[in-house]
């Protein structure tokens, strides 16, 4: 099974209200030293077979047609990945 990841971020010139909310919550919880937060989205698309160039081309098209709105967002990554995203071992609350 093949897997393609698509990352979408708000355009730099667009105010990111969600990122701003996270940025203001961080110091309240003692996580200081961060000058900004931008919040984007990650999509994982899976296919039955291998990830061919054709699959990647289709994903790129879907990324700019449905997964993102080019008026407000940029597709910053379309790439094959081996595994689904997994939680980090370190830093997970006990």
């Amino acid at each position: 099974m093949g897997r393609v990841v698509v990352d979408v971020m708000p355009k730099p010139e667009i105010l990111d209200p969600q990122g701003k909310a996270v940025a203001s919550a961080l110091p309240r919880l003692g996580f200081t030293g961060f000058t900004g937060v931008r919040q984007g989205r990650r999509f994982e698309l899976t296919v039955d077979g291998p990830v061919t160039d054709e699959v990647l081309a289709t994903v790129r098209e879907a990324a700019v047609t449905l997964l993102s709105n080019p008026v407000i967002e940029d597709v910053v990554r379309v790439a094959e990945v081996a595994e689904a995203a997994e939680p980090l071992d370190e830093g997970t609350p006990a």
């Binding site: 667009i14 105010l15 209200p17 969600q18 701003k20 709105n69 008026v71 407000i72």
Partner: peptide, 17 residues
């Protein structure tokens, strides 16, 4: 209508969230 490109621009979350 904006997503369908019948009108320009887009709507994002309110600035006060």
């Amino acid at each position: 209508l904006a997503e369908a490109h019948l009108l320009p621009g887009a709507m994002i979350k309110n600035d006060h969230r």
